[in-house]
Design a protein around this nucleic acid. Sequence first.
DNA 1: CTGGGGATGGGGCCC
DNA 2: AGGGCCCCATCCCCA
Length: 260
Amino acid sequence: MPRSFLVKKHFNSSKKPNYSELESPTVFISPYLYKGLPLPIISQPEIISSVVYNPITVWTTSSLPLSPLSSELSPISGYPSSLSDISSKDHSGSESPRSDEDDRMLNKLTDPHGVEADKFQCSLCNKSYSTYSGLLKHKQLHCDDQTRKSFSCKYCEKEYVSLGALKMHIRTHTLPCVCKICGKAFSRPWLLQGHIRTHTGEKPFSCPHCSRAFADRSNLRAHLQTHSDVKKYQCKNCSKTFSRMSLLHKHEESGCCVAH
DNA sequence: CTGGGGATGGGGCCC
DNA sequence: AGGGCCCCATCCCCA
């Protein structure tokens, strides 16, 4: 299960993400950041705050056609004619105040059976709420892609359900953390910190079972699996076990499970 | 082909 | 709200 569950993916989910694709120049990627230039020429705050270069696009999917990405290219009548129209319509995510009377009216309008109930039920998970506002909040937070906000990266086609997640992602394009030793750039300070250890040779994470040490805690954790008698990841078909998920995936892709 | 190390992206949590 | 850190997942590379 991918941890990046907040990322809205439009490609075939059975296809493994190719992270190297993100490094390929696209129409949205700043020429300052790629084309063999590891260091941004323009300071990142300038890029981020630039009106022309604003990488953040915000819209609600409820105000868009089913395919928001294609709509960006071909506006459809009845929908905002530009992204600025969309973003100016709703940036805050707050709805205008709505009374319970309005709630009831909306419930009438949206209830396919025409039954005026005092409960507002989510059509997806059947949870009930006493007000429409409650239902709307539930949908925005948990359940409904139709009403959930979408924060789209302008450098690539990724979309996020929170601005914070998008900002975090944008750092992977802007790479604001630059190594003073070799000039390599990173998205987050602690990634740079880990990289600097490759220069200094510092390996603060020692294996308690052998003499090995690691610069990264996660890699120590992976290493510890090699000392473990019990391997966590087992092939469903041949019952062979592996110390890492990636090794199991490799095993499966190499044909074990295809043959069955 | 397999196993392991190095590196890095990204969400969650805490302050 | 944002930064720092933790943890997980996964890629690449090499033995």
